[in-house]
Design a protein around this nucleic acid. Sequence first.
DNA 1: CTGAAAGCGCTAACAT
DNA 2: ATGTTAGCGCTTTCAG
Lengths: 341, 341
Amino acid sequence: MSGKKVTLRDIAEHLGVNTSTVSRALNPKTSKMLTAEQVRRVQQAADELGYVQNTMAYALRKGRSMTIGVIIPDLMNPVFPPILKGIINYLNREGYTSIIAYCENDIELALTEIKRMRGRQVDGFILAGAFRDDASVDYCVENKIPAITVGRSIDKDLVDKIVIDNESGMQQIIEHLLELGHKEIALIAATQNISDGYERYQAYRHLLQEQGIEVKEDLIVFAQAFKHAAGQEATRELLARKVPFTAVIAANDLVALGCIEELENHGLNCPADVSVIGFNNMPYLDQFRVPLTTIEIPRLKMGEKAARLILERLNKPNMPLQHIVLEPKLLERRSTAPCKG
Amino acid sequence: MSGKKVTLRDIAEHLGVNTSTVSRALNPKTSKMLTAEQVRRVQQAADELGYVQNTMAYALRKGRSMTIGVIIPDLMNPVFPPILKGIINYLNREGYTSIIAYCENDIELALTEIKRMRGRQVDGFILAGAFRDDASVDYCVENKIPAITVGRSIDKDLVDKIVIDNESGMQQIIEHLLELGHKEIALIAATQNISDGYERYQAYRHLLQEQGIEVKEDLIVFAQAFKHAAGQEATRELLARKVPFTAVIAANDLVALGCIEELENHGLNCPADVSVIGFNNMPYLDQFRVPLTTIEIPRLKMGEKAARLILERLNKPNMPLQHIVLEPKLLERRSTAPCKG
DNA sequence: CTGAAAGCGCTAACAT
DNA sequence: ATGTTAGCGCTTTCAG
């Protein structure tokens, strides 16, 4: 009941049977080999003695650890906790455990963490912070470790992926802005080595063209990170170019918030003078000084789908490459307003 | 290089030596038994073949899994990610891995998760969401599994703990409010089964008395959760009592935000009519509609200290009970203002 | 239907 | 300084 851990052998000795009998009785897949009575006895003894299976021994024997490694770029970025929650929830329900590492957007670190986790015999990886060209994905593929990406994806078709439809997100943004009468629409794009950043940038270009609106290079600027400060800096650069604009599409909400602050520093009000749109719908955004119009993405669901997908991949190593696309949705709040011009 | 995993034996055969030699060479603690040359050869071979230690086998053999279980109430509450980050960082650096579970403030669930983790042979637990009376702590103690609490603590002196000085936090709040001239200070207290809630409530009472201010029971109300909606509800109740107040101390920032919103619904402005103070300093609070005056707590540090403490406990099972107190600090923003009365 | 025995990969006595 | 051997707790042939 207390202290020392109870093993299969303890139960076996207690009952005067062989450990293999106990093992079989406790495993639903093999318990039908035994008499129902025997199974009952064993199960009762296990309960009484407080037996908990030693996952380490199980893993060593079976070569499966029932563990999934999850790599995220940054716990502090509010996008990731819900994804993580979705993953952990689903995995737990299926008897799996997840181990988390974050890589601070550092590809070297990601690889180190992956190797470390590999030592722990993880059965597969969920990569939530991949770059378009990512050495850690290559490592997984080379070493035949099942892996999938969720959110940010890689360019090559190497692994299963869960993505959101950035094209659709950008389209909703642009339609919204157009309806409000905006014509001079600036873009604070994310770094182009990340799929979301790249895809939204591309979508911005060709969607504007489709609408017969000229894409001015001077209205495109790049944020160095998905952070508030990066948004300020990018906005400063944009303003310095002295090309007029009435709306800004930001790389994400944090960048949008930084943008708004910097606009104000230059005497520009949002949304009166400039409309600003974010991306992701981070928590409590409705409580912010300027409630941000943004794109909502189904984060919890992304996590759940990712968990489900990696397990599916584990069970069917040869199934064709999966590519799951989730729909984002525009959320109108108060950072966008009709164009005054 | 690819596919199959490389074991100690592979290296041994490759080099024509015994596995134990390889084992010794790769372990810094035992490598001095061998010639420097031998160690070098082994290490090189290990690198070339891409050896990664099988932690499961190691754990099985040593009876230590190099894993710490971390239980938090809710990933979505912005207080926890930084704590988690501090924990993971420190633990990784020391060669440990953490596995996370959250219990949704459900004590049954917490116990289930703890048992599950025990099956994975975790060496110890960090409990970040304990209740004052908590069955999971009892379980750990009974089964002699090292455990500590961080933040919320238990009443009994059973395990090591990291706490913040709630008394000091409340004192800073009350001093601040008094300086602003407030006399009618309401409290939206947290549930009393959580140490932070209880301690702050007690501190509120006796600190007011110390200042010669009457504690009016009608100015004390309880929030059912650390959430926005709970703050609104509590504020509604407070308002319904029709007892005048000019300041509110909230259970945490989320509750404070809810409070402010509900005050506005009743035509009361913060800080013009009522000053409101939060607790925790959640991220981006300065960007909110009403930038909240609040108490900052060293979350990252709490996590690091917790990680450090559990490892210390593992190595010195008999050291006296540790009780680490961290200092909170008032952060003045714009939700508090001089009393008009 | 159940028992005996081997072995997953590793470390730590115990040899030599 | 290195090799031999046993065994951590479990599952799984192979026997019976």
